[in-house]
Design a protein around this nucleic acid. Structure first.
Lengths: 189, 189
DNA sequence: GCATTTGCCTAATACCTTTAGGCAAATTAG
DNA sequence: CTAATTTGCCTAAAGGTATTAGGCAAATGC
């Protein structure tokens, strides 16, 4: 009976890898146990239940994503910052589709409030500093940007843009141009 | 042994209702069997498997949504049409959250091609007739509109906009205004 | 009224989730 | 360095979902 050295962190990490390989909804306590070559029940000392595991993966993904966005945006402003933000977001989803889906998991309010989701909205607001919008326009813009980024990435992941000759990359660039133009227009209004 | 009169259609319909009540991911063959007070195995004469059931619910939702959008858009043009389209979309998600999630199910290419998803993109293109864009801008715009609508609705459903004082309805109106302005700007470019 | 089809059932297998309780390995104490 | 304790993974068991195979009775067609 060799001890493998399970910890909540290792399980969460492995769960995130599993999610990227087989999809977040295929992440199961059983699959994770197999991956560690350990009996299923053993995981229950480290993770409360299946939902707890998924929540931890979601929180990990939110942190990672926030870190990447923060790094991408650092030292940039205006459209540069907007594009860096958006690309960081989209790239993360491409490289880590399972984690990206995990980040979309509905968290209960307290958990969400204590998560990196807070940093996400702060960073979005930071982007908007380059386009001086005042409240409530700033909030509207935060919501719109979040919608476009999430919507685009999620439709693209679902394959919705792969049935036309027009490359998705071009539509992405066009969209970012449009958003920049739009925000600059609002600024002068 | 009274016959309940199961059919593929009734199962799909009931599955859609179940989805709205308990969430699309909670729609299971077992739950559906319970709802008809019938043994689980009995459903397998009408539905190939769990995935088949979910696909049928997704197709139903896509049809319903396309019908509503079509009705909303009929006889309108320009910003009127844009707003009608967007509202129809958002309203459907509010009234039928489970079905809305179902409509997001990833379909295999052939199934998607034969589904109402085709009507959706056609209608989006129709909206854009009010803003004469030429290819490939039109495709870009179709993708961007789809992203905004889906993104907004899905974040709103997830409760992402309910932690601020600013009412979501206002951000929605602001977003539609912005998109209209944006598309009109592109037209003159 | 009889034959056939059809619809729902029983039975069985397999996998995932979760809890309870046990034994051995690792850690700490004397 | 051994003894006591904690900790980590295990066995066992119960309950839920998915799916297939084969059976009997109700509905349908002639």
């Amino acid at each position: 009976m060799v001890r493998v050295g399970l910890t909540t962190e290792r399980l969460t990490q492995a769960g995130a890898e599993l999610a990227d390989e087989v999809g977040f909804d295929q992440v199961t306590v059983s699959a994770l146990a197999r991956r560690f070559d350990v009996k299923v029940a053993s995981l229950y000392s480290h993770v409360r239940n299946s939902h707890d595991l998924k929540t931890r993966i979601a929180l990990l993904a939110l942190e990672e994503l926030a870190d990447r966005v923060a790094a991408a945006v650092a030292g940039r402003a205006g459209k540069d910052a907007l594009a860096a933000f958006a690309d960081a977001y989209r790239d993360y989803a491409r490289v880590h589709p399972g984690r990206y889906d995990a980040a979309r998991l509905r968290l209960d309010p307290e958990t969400a409030a204590a998560s990196a989701a807070v940093r996400h909205s702060q960073m979005t607001r930071a982007i908007l500093r380059g386009y001086d919008l005042t409240e409530p326009d700033q909030t509207h813009a935060v919501r719109m940007l979040g919608s476009v980024f999430h919507g685009y990435v999620s439709l693209e992941m679902a394959g919705a843009f792969s049935h036309t000759a027009v490359p998705s990359q071009e539509s992405w660039a066009w969209t970012l141009d449009s958003l920049d133009t739009l925000l600059r227009t609002w600024t002068t209004t």
